[in-house]
Structures are given as structure tokens and as C-alpha cells.
Design a protein around this nucleic acid. Structure first.
Lengths: 224, 224
DNA sequence: ACCTGAACACCGTTCAAGT
DNA sequence: ACCTGAACACCGTTCAAGT
């Protein structure tokens, strides 16, 4: 049972979605079950079906919430590559709030209102930059996928563990890599720490986003 | 029940893993359950536990299989960017054989023998190209993630559906996009076909890989 | 060495019934 | 309008028992 903040919440569609997100954050997406959510609200599992059609619809709604939190200056007049960078930054920022749920968001771009708005904006800025329709579709998809992959690959932060357990987990992985023979795997051993850990998350994300935008810029240069 | 090719296979660790991959290809990863695999072999679910420790170990073994199929010229003397391209190409090729299982492979790089070999190779070529250890770790991770995202985002090819159902599915999605108001969503409507479908898969993958490598190249140029 | 039967603690979901 | 009870068809896994 997740820490109940304040009084026992009353059941409602919004409350269910919010609790589901909190549960995913705390214990992983697998912990989000209809029966468990019933427990959280002190109610029969079947009670949830009044507020939510079924589990799939609940997961979709969770994905929509993530897009709804995207904050982007749609009126920006910056150059196209700066605008593309801003799109990925905004996606990453929204997804980091619920890292275990990125895959849910991924499939809801065209299904959610905010996702549609974001997609339209991104496709537009790419088309006006001079990309073909085909390139535009691919790059826009890659932008979303890049955000998904950066967040879901974020080293550490596995749910369902406290900090001690996470450190223990990391130490085990590190030991596993360092146990490899030094003559055959010098590079893995050299990079072990950097592969498993990252002490500046801001740098991690900026580096990933920079590389993506640089790739897009190079593609445009090659085409023109 | 998946089409039983030839006689009823005898139970063995290898047979279980292979059947699990075939099942995932045909009906998705969710269809892979211990009980279902028991059915496939005409055997009690518990019989599988003799050949496989538990479900997690089975999933890990499936991931290892994917890496084991990676074909790469480890002795290549090409320039670093061409070698990096070859790494992603090889990963994509191996993963396309079992597209629903890419996430299983993803977490097995450092756990499987072939994954370790591939990681060492990739880290080495990046280090010798002049990247820092931090950059090397990030770019190598991105290489794997790029392959994962290209394959898992491959338009169409959702399992558990025959071709008619997939076309129907596509038509529904297309109709959904074309139903958006033309004045607010001109770019989504323009790109609808390209967003949902791709008639040249080779181009799709080459474009994605090119963009990734171009990003890495630009990063090195900026650093130097 | 390899497989089975029974059992346990879980899932999502339906449907009639209660208030 | 909103919730419950009972039931169904699923999961993964353990453990003693069979051959």
C-alpha cells in the first residue's frame, strides 16, 4: 500500500489514473493491477470498472497524462534545429516524471490531444526546414523515440528498490563487468563506471539530445 | 497452438527457448507463458521447470539468442564511423528476426557472451576514434538503443494478426488521422501515410542508422 | 533424470444483484 | 449512479510424489 496522502481518496476516474501513475513510479508498471488499485482505494476490484472501461483504457489514460504535462513554446520563432531540440527537451522533461510509463506515452501521440498538437508542431517545423514528407515523418518519429530511449535507459532509478538496494544492485553489476578478463575486455572495464552510472543527469540528456539534433542537421545538409 | 513443424518435439532447454521465440514472433511476447509452452509440448507446465529455472531465466535466454545471431566483421579495418554503422546494422539485422523480443535483448548485452564481445568492440572503436570515456559509453549505449527503437518502431508487423487484420488496423489508424480538422492539423494529414506505413524497409533502416552515425560524427567534430 | 498432481497466491473480466 | 459477490479462465511457482 502506497503512503496515503491525506484522507482516503474518493474513487473517481482521475483519482484512479493518478494513483496508477504513483504506483508505477513507486513499484513499477507491473504493480499496476486492477485488484491492487482496488486495495489502494479500500474497494472491491470491480468498483474500478465503473470509472474505467478496462485495463487497456486505464493504461492509455496514463499515457495521455504524460503528454498533457508537456510544456512547449508553440509560438517559438527560433531556427528549426533549436525548435527540434526544444521538442525533445519538453518530451524528456514530461516523461521523466513517470519513467516507468514512457512506453505508455509512446503509443498515445496520435491518440491524445496534446500528443496531436505536439506532433503537428514537430512535423511543421521539419517540413518548413526543407525536409521531404518521408524524412519529416521519420525524424519526428525518431524525436519521440529518442526521448523514450533516453528516459527509459536512464542509469539507475529502477523502481521497487530503496536507495541502499539500488546501490547494492549497481555494485553487483559493476563487479560483474570488472570480473571480465582484462586482456580480452579492456574497454568494457575502462568504461564500467560510465556505463552503469551517470552523476550529471542534465549532461546525459543534453548530450543525447545534441547528438540527435546534429544527426538531423547533417541529414538536411546532405539532402540540400 | 503454433503449427508443429514435423514430429512432436522432445522437451529440452534449447527446444523450449526456440519455441518461446517462435511463439513470441507469432503472437507477441505476452503469449509466452509457462503454461502455454507446456501445452505446445504436450506436457504439464511444471515439466518446464526442469529445463529452465523460472520465467525470468527463460526470457534472459531468449535475449541471449538474439545476440548470438549477431553477425559482424570484428576484424574490420574500416574508418570508425563505418564500423559504428556496421555495428548498428548487425544489431538491427539480428533483432529483426524476433521484433517483439528486442527489449529482452537490450538488457542482456553485458550478460551474454556475444553481447560482451559486441560491446567491447564498439567501445574500442569509439575510444580509438578519439571520444572520451564518458562519450564512448553514451554513444555505445545509444547505438544499442537506436537499433532497439528502429526495430520496435517498425511500422506494421504487429503480431497476433494476419495480413488482412493488419491492413484493417492500418486503415482505422489512417482514418483516425484524416478525421482531424484540416485547418489545425495540415502536417499530420499530409504525412499520415508516411507515419503509418513504409514501403521500403531497407531505406527506413538505412536512414535511421545514417542519422545516428551523422550525429556521432558531428559530436566528434565539435569535441576536437 | 525427468515428469505429474495438487495446491497457493495471484491476474482481468463478466454479470447479476444490491443500495 | 455507484459498488459488491460470486464465478470464470487465466497467470507463475512450490513441493511432494511418481517412474
Amino acid at each position: 500500500m502506497i503512503a496515503t496522502k491525506g484522507a482516503a481518496e474518493t474513487l473517481s476516474r482521475d483519482a484512479v489514473i493518478e494513483r496508477a501513475l504513483a504506483l508505477a513510479d513507486a513499484e513499477g508498471l507491473d504493480a499496476v493491477t486492477i485488484r491492487r488499485l482496488g486495495q489502494e482505494f479500500g474497494v472491491t476490484p470491480m468498483a474500478l470498472y465503473w470509472h474505467v472501461k478496462n485495463k487497456e483504457e486505464l493504461l492509455d489514460a496514463m499515457g495521455d497524462r504524460i503528454f498533457a504535462a508537456v510544456e512547449l513554446d508553440y509560438a517559438s520563432t527560433a531556427l528549426w534545429d533549436e525548435q527540434l531540440r526544444a521538442v525533445v527537451r519538453a518530451l524528456v522533461q514530461a516523461m521523466r516524471a513517470h519513467p516507468t510509463c514512457v512506453e505508455l506515452a509512446y503509443r498515445r501521440i496520435f491518440g491524445s490531444a496534446e500528443g496531436q498538437r505536439l506532433a503537428e508542431h514537430t512535423l511543421g517545423l521539419l517540413r518548413r526546414a526543407g525536409f521531404t514528407v518521408r524524412q519529416t515523418a521519420d525524424i519526428a518519429s525518431h524525436a519521440l523515440q529518442t526521448a523514450v530511449m533516453l528516459v527509459s535507459a536512464e542509469p539507475g532509478a529502477e523502481p521497487g528498490f530503496n536507495e541502499d538496494e539500488r546501490n547494492e544492485n549497481l555494485a553487483v553489476k559493476r563487479a560483474g563487468l570488472m570480473a571480465l578478463p582484462a586482456d580480452v575486455f579492456p574497454y568494457i572495464r575502462e568504461a564500467a563506471d560510465e556505463l552503469l552510472h551517470c552523476d550529471d543527469m542534465a549532461d546525459y540528456y543534453e548530450f543525447g539530445i545534441d547528438m540527435f539534433v546534429a544527426g538531423a542537421r547533417a541529414t538536411l545538409a546532405d539532402t540540400a
